[in-house]
Amino acid sequence: MIKKWRSNSLLSGLILFGVLLIPFIRQFLESVMVLHMLVQLPLLVLVGWLIGITITRNFQSHFDSWNSNGIPGTLLFVMITMYWMIPRTLDEALSIWYIELFKYVSLPVIGLLLYDSWKKLQSIGKSFIYLNYLSMFGLMAWLYIDSPIQICNNYLAAEQKILGWGLLGITAFMVLYLVQAVFTDQTEEAI
């Protein structure tokens, strides 16, 4: 049963990847800035996560040899996602083919690493990463909403603002989730 579910995840990961590669879908998602950053990029990470469920299982020892506590994988994940949060990179992905290629390779890879790392990471590491992204998303929201200039060539200033509000929404959601997590009773889980 579990095995079947695992192979399903591999299959669904590959299908999702294929769907994201379809030129029409790719162009549609990249035509709007907020879809580009908040839909396409996370979906590419999801591809890696789904594939990772199978891959890490089959090559567990290989992953454990360098990512035994999950910290190296997480660091790589943080660095790559931070790179993709820089305003210019989205722009370059549209105009430079190898940046686009890098996007389609790097994001699934770190998705896979995230799957492998997250389950190994201790709760302190998880909380730290969570708070790190909380402040990063907040900062990016601030940057995009507040920027008086058009940061990207391919997207209009109005689109930057929409993305900013999208990021702010995510930040707000993360804060709410955090608040409910620390203020509702966790005793059952502890047992």
Partner: peptide
Amino acid sequence: GVGFLLLYIDTGRAIIKKYGSLGK
């Protein structure tokens, strides 16, 4: 800040584990 943040995440984790939540 990172050092202090790690420290307070740890105290928070420990308190939640023992008492159930930060509210408690």
